[in-house]
């Protein structure tokens, strides 16, 4: 049984933001994460603000600069099957398709996928952990099979999104509307590391809404991909994954690269050093392996998640070789 709350259905973004001004409010779009969190008492809500009916938050549109603007209410299923995304931003289509199940992809939205709460079983379970305002991270001395090997700082969650790493690799920006106006920031700086604020995963203020995501026009010789390893063949979160976006020169050398890991850090984990190592080189078995080795540098595995180090190395190497 989901605890009681009031439910409002504003008919414009402005009204929705007004409704969010009260404390204890939560946003409802696809609801696939919200309902689970409310049912499991991960957090509570006095009032739930439905934004599912706001047409201004939907749709995939070509921008005037040749880029793409994707409304926050676009479902994962729409992202996975959109012809423009499949052609120009395959990493995003692959990320969306690799997330969850067909049912959840029909329900879950892009905005929700970026703002979903972590899946750490202590955070989701009946544990008053650091992220919920307690004073202990239970993963440190407990089962940490699915926790992070990079970027942990008192809390060791991984960011669960498969679209976020792809979008960071593709250079996405997010548009945010709130009571004090709107702002546009790189998706990369949307996420908040636990060392900065352990109680949240992104910069959204309680009275702000992520309204859309924009992608720059694809470069002529740009290739991108998202590759993910999970414990079963379908419907699971990433044990580890890698999103790549590579821009190739006429001679086949890499002119620009973005390498972003998933499933291994509290946020999409960009590896600038690997990007630098790839730049100016052709993708060969040697350069792919070297970049993969760089990606695992500094990994800090816990008692049960050391396997992720090998996974990352293999995934990065495989993904690079597949894109050449």
């Amino acid at each position: 049984m989901i605890p009681k709350f009031d439910y409002v259905r504003p008919d414009s973004l402005r009204q929705a933001i007004k409704q969010l001004a009260a404390s204890g409010t939560r946003i409802h779009a696809g609801g696939t994460d919200l309902l689970g969190c409310l049912r499991d008492r991960v957090f509570t809500a006095d009032k739930v603000v439905s934004i599912g009916g706001l047409s201004e938050l939907g749709g995939i549109k070509r921008a005037s600069d040749g880029g793409l603007t994707i409304g926050a209410l676009t479902t994962l299923a729409q992202l996975a099957s959109d012809p423009v995304i499949l052609k120009d931003y395959p990493a995003l289509a692959q990320g969306a398709l690799s997330a969850a199940s067909p049912q959840l992809r029909n329900q879950g939205t892009l905005g929700g996928n970026l703002c979903q709460r972590p899946r750490c079983w202590y955070f989701r379970g009946d544990f008053h952990c650091l992220r919920k305002g307690g004073n202990l991270c239970y993963a440190v001395g407990g089962r940490n099979d699915y926790h992070c090997i990079f970027g942990g700082d008192a809390c060791y969650i991984v960011h669960p999104s498969d679209t976020a790493p792809a979008l960071v690799a593709l250079g996405a920006r997010v548009h945010i509307n709130g009571a004090n106006g709107s702002r546009t920031i790189p998706l990369e700086s949307f996420f908040v590391p636990p060392g900065k604020d352990i109680t949240r995963e992104n910069v959204l203020a309680p009275n702000e809404i992520l309204t859309n995501v924009s992608l720059p026009a694809p470069a002529p010789n740009q290739r991108s991909s998202y590759r993910k390893m999970r414990a079963r063949g379908a419907w699971d979160f990433a044990l580890a994954g890698v999103a790549l976006s590579l821009r190739f020169g006429v001679g086949g050398e890499v002119e620009g690269a973005r390498v972003v890991l998933s499933g291994v850090a509290p946020m999409p984990w960009r590896v600038a050093e690997a990007e630098k190592a790839l730049t100016g080189k052709r993708i060969t078995e040697d350069t792919a392996r070297a970049a993969a080795e760089i990606c695992i540098k500094g990994a800090e595995p816990m008692e049960y998640n050391g396997y992720k180090v090998n996974l990352v190395r293999a995934l990065v190497e495989e993904a690079l070789l597949a894109l050449r």
Binding site: Y7, G31, T32, N106
Partner: peptide
């Protein structure tokens, strides 16, 4: 569209 009815709120 196939959806999980356990994750749909009645007002939806």
């Amino acid at each position: 569209q196939a959806v999980n009815s356990c994750l749909v709120l009645a007002p939806q």
